[in-house]
Design a protein around this nucleic acid. Structure first.
Lengths: 166, 166
DNA sequence: AAATGCATGCAAGGTGCTTGCATTCTTCAT
DNA sequence: ATGAAGAATGCAAGCACCTTGCATGCATTT
């Protein structure tokens, strides 16, 4: 990996993380660069993989997904086959927003969104628990969202990391 | 709330969730609608709040954020002031990607990203634990990401929910 | 000091966005 | 049934934006 990010790149990433539909004109105004250079740098950052894509941020509540839930899952047995089966399960379930394998006593954490308690109950009792790979689940309902993902912490523009020779 | 979503709206949201920089032309091809109508519907969905914004999706690893961690936090005392102080704390910490108040024994779940174990250690020992509101934390490192958030489950296009009169 | 390699800004050709307008479709009342 | 009203649609034009070639300037190296 040879590529290095300079201050312009970092600020560009930061701005696009805040608003992914900025035009190169607007971007240029914010980071003090010409639209053409924004276009070039953006293209480079995309092809080098720093930018993985762009997504619209939808309103969960307005789509009727009023329940946000964290589920801790313990697998029945801890062999590789079981882990693979569980991975395939969660990847096929649209309610599952994120799924992580963790250190500690609980094997997995799932973040899921459903419509009401009915949807949650259906998910846990009809989908999750009956699956062969699952032994035990612990359901924690999200009461309040203190902070929601607004992007990764991009290193301060004009700091360490990366060189500033460009 | 008066607005209803028809099939076109739902598919439009779905496509924009997959690629937030789709042009109205491309969008029109995918949902079989003219670019002008895509433009109008998109504008409406934005102003009505179904679309909260657009974000670039950055590569966590390439930014050097190799540690992804879930931290369970118990507050020292369970009064409102303490909850408010804790909320202010996490909102000021860029390493904290998401923060939820949960039902169950553990009060809060934080998802954080840091550079290496050193960054994690610094975060937990120098920032989180010294804070007056925090009593106890349990740190779980993410070993594997089975599924990452790619968007909310938009109800199947051509199903229940919403009317199809438009 | 000369030369090479980049990054930059400008400008032009091409693409895409958006709004007015006429048409079609649906719905509702007579 | 029939007519009217409202809404959604596609088309087209004016406008904004994107991108690439090109010449310039800066920095580093030999």
């Amino acid at each position: 990996m040879n590529e290095q990010l300079d201050t312009f790149d970092l600020r560009l990433l930061q701005e696009l993380q805040k608003d992914g539909r900025l035009t190169n004109n607007e971007l240029g105004e914010r980071i003090a660069l010409s639209p053409s250079q924004c276009s070039r740098r953006r293209t480079r950052l995309e092809s080098e993989g720093y930018i993985r894509g762009y997504q619209a941020n939808l309103d969960r509540q307005k789509l009727g997904l009023d329940m946000l839930v964290v589920i801790s899952v313990t697998l029945a047995t801890h062999n590789r086959d079981n882990a693979r089966r569980f991975s395939q399960l969660v990847n096929g379930l649209p309610e599952v927003l994120e799924a992580y394998a963790l250190t500690g006593e609980m094997d997995y954490h799932l973040k899921i969104a459903t419509r009401g308690l009915a949807g949650l109950s259906r998910f846990v009792n009809d989908v999750l628990l009956p699956h062969e790979s699952v032994q035990h689940v612990k359901t924690s309902i999200v009461l309040d969202t203190l902070k929601t993902f607004e992007g990764l912490p991009v290193p301060a523009s004009g700091s360490s990391h990366g060189d500033s020779s460009r």
